[in-house]
Design a protein around this nucleic acid. Structure first.
Lengths: 107, 107
DNA sequence: TTGTATTATTGCAATATTACGATAATGTAT
DNA sequence: ATACATTATCGTAATATTGCAATAATACAA
């Protein structure tokens, strides 16, 4: 065993878990924070900043990107990653919705 | 390899990741949601509700408890878990702080 | 004390995540 | 085309997570 039983939970619950997973690794939190501070966010800069191997950063970027949090554009010869603010706010809203709902119900 | 390099990140970043990890498994989200809806929340009820083995629920409860999100009291012969609303709000605030900060910086 | 009910812990086995080097793919410049 | 720079993917090893049965611990009742 070992795999999460995703099928026994509601869509809403799984959605929260998937979102949280993106932020559940410090490298990804650091990457998001770093990207948000930059004008142009070249991958190599992230590698230098965070201190992990290029391949590892690339993997984390994929996870972040899969959640819709990145907008990539080409600037010169490099990929420029930017934070997708709309999506970012969407995730924040979903999280707060869960928090607020849960608080409402509670004793 | 395989372990997160926790030491290369700031405390703030690690804190966000640790909090997110609690919510990154659907069983834990479901447990939190269920607990918040109950007056008295005995462990066995959770087992029936979620559909995982008692031992598994107990493990998830431990993770949730380690984050300070539970208040346990004794009612008759059973443990009664309650959501620690204060801590819950604290985590929500920390998350929002990170989100808002990140948004501020961004392009 | 003995029995019963509830929750925690232990000890695996299966799966997932993380990290890295090596290599492939892509784009730019000469 | 060749060379160079940048990013993605592959393969693999180490570690973490997940889930369960078995068992221990705890509390209450008779």
């Amino acid at each position: 065993m070992g795999a999460s039983k995703v099928d026994i939970y509601s869509d809403e619950i799984n959605e929260i878990a998937v979102i949280a997973k993106v932020f559940s690794h410090p490298a990804r939190v650091a990457i998001l924070q770093f990207i948000s501070k930059q004008e142009a966010c070249i991958c190599n800069d992230i590698v230098d900043e965070i201190g992990l191997a290029q391949a590892t950063i690339s993997q984390h970027l994929k996870v972040i990107n899969d959640s819709g949090l990145l907008k990539g554009t080409f600037e010169g010869k490099s990929l420029c990653y930017c934070l997708n603010i709309d999506r970012f706010q969407e995730l924040q809203a979903l999280f707060n919705q869960f928090f607020n709902q849960t608080k409402l119900n509670c004793c």
